[in-house]
């Protein structure tokens, strides 16, 4: 029998940091929590014992200099590191009471609940419709459901009006920003609980970036979002919580407003003020 570690569910935690925004609830549910998470690529120790919660319906940004382990950490959360030969993930990733970092976990189901959007827009070389309908169809959605899923997903990412007349044309003809929003639509079509965004705007122009940022704000009403960002301003603009990574360690985690204005750690302050990194 595989060992399952169970924790009381749902985990109710008091926020460790004062939430400044008035619309925030006093008590936040933890959607996902990592416990002492380590990642090794062969000999390299890429993530060194990270404990980090993602709160439901919030945006958490991961920042830090490149190579600090933030993307690697993000890729653990839906077991995408499984697809990299030689990668080893140790520690617990608790989602609604179960540790998803165990071999017995059905990664296929898991990734439907924890969606992911990548750095470079990567639509399939299929039609716009097929890009979104592809995965739901494999899980048995009917034609009628598919039509509705495609429309709803595209509306949620504000792409519907732009593409509704050419749903069956190839997705590769869309602009970079449109492609990235399509990729987000593709992820939310599975109705995940969590969406992981890995530097989703780094390949986009400023206008498209703005649209994606707006979208992220919109989406947090329905989903829990974790976003890796190269851009500190972006992290400050769109996130509720921020985690600062350096050399594989989680240096500081806290409410965005507090972390950016009044960091507890010297290293964080140095990074934010541009003294290095």
């Amino acid at each position: 029998m595989p060992q399952t570690i169970t924790v009381p569910f749902p985990v109710q935690v008091k926020p460790k940091f004062k939430i400044s925004q008035p619309q925030e609830k006093k008590q936040l549910r933890v959607q996902l929590e990592t416990v002492d998470l380590h990642v090794y690529y062969g000999e390299t120790h890429a993530v060194k014992g990270v404990d980090l919660p993602l709160y439901q319906n919030t945006v958490t940004a991961f920042i830090g200099p490149s190579g600090c382990g933030k993307s690697t950490f993000l890729r653990c959360l839906n077991r995408m590191n499984d697809t990299i030969p030689g990668a080893r993930v140790e520690g617990r990733i608790m989602v609604e009471g179960i540790d998803i970092n165990q071999p017995v976990i059905n990664t296929s189901h898991l990734r439907r609940h924890i969606g992911m959007v990548f750095q470079r827009p990567n639509p399939f070389s299929k039609s716009i419709y097929e890009n979104i309908a592809f995965a739901p169809r494999l899980y048995g959605a009917s034609k009628k459901d598919l039509d509705r899923i495609v429309e709803e997903s595209l509306k949620k990412v504000a792409l519907w009006d732009e593409v509704k007349d050419r749903l069956h044309k190839t997705a590769l003809a869309l602009s970079g920003g449109q492609q990235q929003r399509l990729c987000i639509a593709r992820a939310i079509a599975m109705n995940p609980r969590i969406i992981l965004l890995d530097e989703p705007t780094s390949a986009l122009d400023p206008i498209s970036t703005g649209k994606v940022e707006e979208l992220v704000q919109e989406l947090k009403k329905d989903f829990t979002i974790a976003i890796v960002s190269h851009n500190m301003q972006q992290a400050a603009r769109i996130s509720d919580y921020t985690a600062y990574f350096y050399m594989g360690n989680l240096v500081e985690f806290g409410e965005t407003a507090q972390l950016f204005t009044n960091p507890k750690k010297k290293e964080t302050e140095d990074y934010l003020t541009g003294r290095f990194g």
């Binding site: 995408m80 296929s108 439907r112 969606g115 990548f118 990567n122 592809f134 990729c183 992820a187 599975m190």
Partner: peptide, 22 residues
């Protein structure tokens, strides 16, 4: 491109289905 493969895996599509369909 590797991205196509990743996109499919990230949707929970299995390796074999990814090979056949993507």
């Amino acid at each position: 491109p590797r991205e196509q493969r990743e996109a499919s895996f990230a949707l929970g599509v299995t390796h074999w289905q990814t090979i056949l369909k993507i």
